[in-house]
Design a protein around this nucleic acid. Structure first.
Lengths: 258, 258
DNA sequence: GTCTATAACGAGATAGAC
DNA sequence: GTCTATCTCGTTATAGAC
């Protein structure tokens, strides 16, 4: 009995995976807007009505693809944070981790551009994301926050001051997303989060064609500077911000500690 | 005869405009992937074959929409640069112009989100952008460069040093895009260009839902910081970067002057 | 209970004959 | 330009296999 159920469940999981794989192929070929249950079924040698045992609607299939894409890129980011620069707790090590997370996101996007477009590109017409996508969608952002939290705990942050008018927003953001961080850094982190995806999107979507050529080092350099905008410090020898931060961040740092 | 031709040409222009307007409506409703000449024709009370007298193919219609969108946002950016802060040549005035250009881009995107998605969102499956889109696509970037060029000429730039490995890329970028600027600033400008659209895309595409609430001031603040990364200076009283830049940018500035 | 297959609806796209 | 016959699509109801 349990063996039977086990076999059934395994079969169900396999068919579900096959459906999603085929759907991803169609995503690449035709785009999310034209994803069709019938075409997926046809390609799998099934009948379209049979798919409804696995996904109650086309939109639910889309949701599954979206959630898996968010989870996949989120996992890549988490793995990069865990793996890279495990050894150091020096300021530069935290910046290296930040860069590693960003490079992992970019690498994932380059490897799976159509899934990237699904989650970070134009919204799919007629589709509204359900609650289930919210948590996976924030995983990459949470990794970035975690990197900054580590740095804040171990070596402190060098932050530019925050405009007064953004105080309430910063307090709210920090309370919701990063209770362990000073509110002033919440705004730069959210900004850097979106700017990181600006860099990736421009590369993936072709905006850098005929413009940027040395893309690896360009990206690496840009996200390193992004890391500085959230208060991460590079080696003192290298950065204006690093040197300047050390010299005049007393006020900002004091303020960042609240 | 010339009157007749004038009338004909006027009619042709009007019909062409009507086609594009209707196509834009469909863009909003169904997305670029599903833009269909037939549906446009139906809505206009024409027959699909008649449209081919105005646009030789669906892709050419798409190209026209893309070019007009790029031109429209580029014009908004150019107008913002011309109009705003005309009075000042102080460092803060240049930063204000930078912010104004960014806000113009964002305002345009908020007003025409579907056209924004057409040009800065996921590529349309099966469509490859022809040469004709390249120049319009670079207009916003050129405006940003112009703002920085003005600042460089009038008050100088405060730049962080550039990684050695990016030297060749920076020289090439500067030679192609901004002959009037020191190469070191070319890389930050291109980065800021893409990051600006990261901010806008996250707002337009819904990534900021349930995250950022005070969006106007958040954006304003973020692009002001972005302006600093390309060497624009704020008021000395306000920014860490401003004060720090004044103090220790001798080396960077010397270097930026080559 | 779990799944697949058949058939159908209403809507829209498409190709070709006229 | 018009009309029609033939495709596609998402979705459901129903019947039958395991």
């Amino acid at each position: 009995m349990s063996a039977i159920r086990g076999a059934r469940e395994r079969a169900r999981i396999e068919v579900t995976a096959a459906i999603k794989d085929e759907a991803r192929k169609q995503l690449a070929a035709e785009g999310a807007a034209k994803l069709s249950l019938r075409a997926v079924a046809r390609e799998l040698g099934m009948v379209s009505s049979a798919l409804y045992r696995y996904f109650p609607s086309r939109d639910e299939l889309l949701t599954a693809l979206i959630v898996e894409a968010y989870d996949s890129v989120g996992e890549a980011a988490e793995k990069a944070r865990r793996t890279v620069a495990r050894d150091g707790s020096a300021p530069a090590a935290h910046l290296a981790r930040w860069v590693a997370v960003a490079c992992a996101v970019r690498g994932w996007a380059l490897a799976r551009p159509h899934e990237y477009a699904l989650i970070y590109g134009s919204p799919v017409p007629g589709y509204t994301a359900p609650q289930a996508t919210i948590a996976p969608a924030s995983r990459v952002g949470l990794v970035l926050i975690a990197v900054v939290e580590d740095a804040h705990r171990e070596v402190g942050l060098a932050l530019p001051p925050l405009a007064e008018e953004l105080r309430p927003e910063a307090e709210r953001l920090a309370a919701e997303l990063a209770p362990g961080l000073p509110p002033a850094v919440a705004v730069p982190i959210v900004a850097a989060w979106s700017q990181l995806f600006g860099l990736v999107s421009f590369e993936i979507f072709g905006q850098f064609n005929r413009v940027v050529e040395a893309r690896d080092s360009f990206f690496r350099h840009a996200v390193e500077e992004l890391g500085r905008t959230v208060g991460l410090l590079g080696t003192a020898a290298r950065g204006t911000l690093g040197a300047a931060g050390a010299a005049n961040t007393e006020s900002a740092a004091v303020r960042a500690q609240r």
